[in-house]
Simulated assay, not measured.
Amino acid sequence: MNYLTIFWDADFGLDIFGFTLRWYSLLFAMGFVLGYQLMIRIYKKEGIDIKLMDSFLTYAVIATIVGARLGHCFFYDWEYYSQHPLEILQVWQGGLASHGAAIALIIAMYFYGKKLTKYFSGEQKERKAMLYTLDRLVITVALAGCFIRFGNWMNSEIYGKIDNSSIETVFVKNIERPLGETRYSQEIKYATAVFTGESLETDSLTYPILSVTAYPRVPFNQPQVNALFGNIAQYFNTQDINDLHAIVLADTEPVINNDGSFTFRVLGVPRLPTQLFESGAYLLIFFILYALYRKGNFALRNGFLFGTFLVLVFGFRFVVEFFKANQTAFEEGMSLNMGQWLSIPLVLIGLVMMAFAKPVELTNTEKK
């Protein structure tokens, strides 16, 4: 069977005057910027003082980053971070969890909502203000989620399980990077991997064959290349199945080229590009939420849009996790992984919010 294989080899960022601006960071920031502009538009439309947007952005950014980081550390890797607590602060090292961000945003909007109580009458003003803010915030969060998951795609991370599909993906950077940037960077300057046009068919999978060329920092003779290649082959072939991106066959031998580099062949491991599935789903959810906000009385039903967001986002997250590679070792053997267990209560909360959402109207506004 023929498959459309995506050989994803995008750089992780843009080099600007010796500084690398990572695509993930750029897309993450873009999600906030567009969300900020959309919230300003909503505030103007509904007569809310746009000066309140300054503190809103502060609450939202801090809650997202802190909550997502703590969520990852506590939910996914507490065994490690409990022994290395200072590394929790190293956000730039990666490790963010959307469930943690969701919880933190709810808490943050409770405190931010106090600034909007003057726009509500009757009892439970703080609750009304919090839900009003969340109803509008989640529209922008869905859009940001689209950008963030696309950033994960650019980073070749949070990918799917090994599988042949109509859009199977070989994450080439995860083959090249250990050679020239991380594990073997002292011996190798950089490496490239290109598709040979050949494939190997097994009973369960069809593997595309790639030619990998490594460029040593100093000239190597054949025995040195053979020894290094033996280590490289062992490294690739002993990876956990969730981190496996290349397989070196037992009869493969490295060939030294005229320029001092050496070349060997590997089987590229095809995976599902679940980052794109999620990015597309969150963009669709953004359009759904925005359409609900603009039409009918859904925007006036306090908590309805927030509940819809929880049901759609974390309901989809529950389903897509069946197709994603596990993020941590402890998830192996679990009938449901951590992302799914954390999604269940959020979906249930969302259903309750939708069922019991009550109409509420703003007062003391200057609508435009």
Rank of each mutant, 00 (worst) to 15 (best):
D11A: 11
D11V: 04
L26D: 12
F147A: 13
A291F: 13
L276Q: 07
A214H: 06
Q224G: 01
S98A: 10
L205P: 10
A101K: 10
V194W: 05
S165I: 11
Y81V: 08
V352R: 08
F322G: 05
I344S: 06
Y24P: 07
N174P: 05
Q124S: 12
F147H: 07
R177C: 06
D259V: 09
L249I: 05
E198Q: 15
A60I: 03
I6L: 15
I103E: 00
H245W: 11
Y24S: 12
F17D: 09
G315D: 01
E187T: 13
F298T: 14
L292M: 15
V61I: 02
T133I: 07
F17C: 10
W153D: 13
L131P: 00
P345N: 09
F287I: 07
F262K: 09
L131H: 04
H72Q: 08
L27K: 13
S55K: 14
A10L: 15
I65Y: 03
T182H: 05
G47K: 06
R177K: 11
F17N: 10
G307Q: 09
R265W: 08
I209N: 00
S156P: 01
G67L: 08
S199P: 01
R271E: 00
M334V: 09
R136A: 05
Q90V: 06
F32R: 12
Y235C: 04
L284S: 04
F150W: 09
L205D: 02
I175Q: 05
E331S: 04
C146N: 08
T140M: 10
E126H: 09
Y293T: 03
Y190D: 14
W153A: 02
F286D: 09
M109R: 11
L249A: 14
T206V: 14
P85K: 04
F322S: 10
T213N: 05
S25A: 15
P208V: 01
H72E: 08
L267D: 15
H72L: 00
A291W: 14
G71L: 12
Q83L: 12
D163C: 08
A193G: 12
A97N: 07
T133S: 14
T202K: 09
F314H: 03
Y132A: 02
G280P: 14
M30Y: 05
R136Y: 02
C73N: 02
A246T: 00
L86R: 04
K173F: 06
L351P: 03
K118G: 15
R317A: 02
T5Q: 05
V66E: 07
V313S: 13
A144N: 03
V141C: 04
F309E: 01
R136G: 15
D203P: 06
G260I: 02
R136N: 15
I349L: 15
D77Q: 13
G35E: 07
E181W: 12
A355I: 00
K51H: 11
G94E: 12
Y3S: 04
S261I: 05
L249S: 12
E366G: 10
L131T: 00
G94K: 06
G122Q: 02
T274R: 08
G67F: 02
E46L: 02
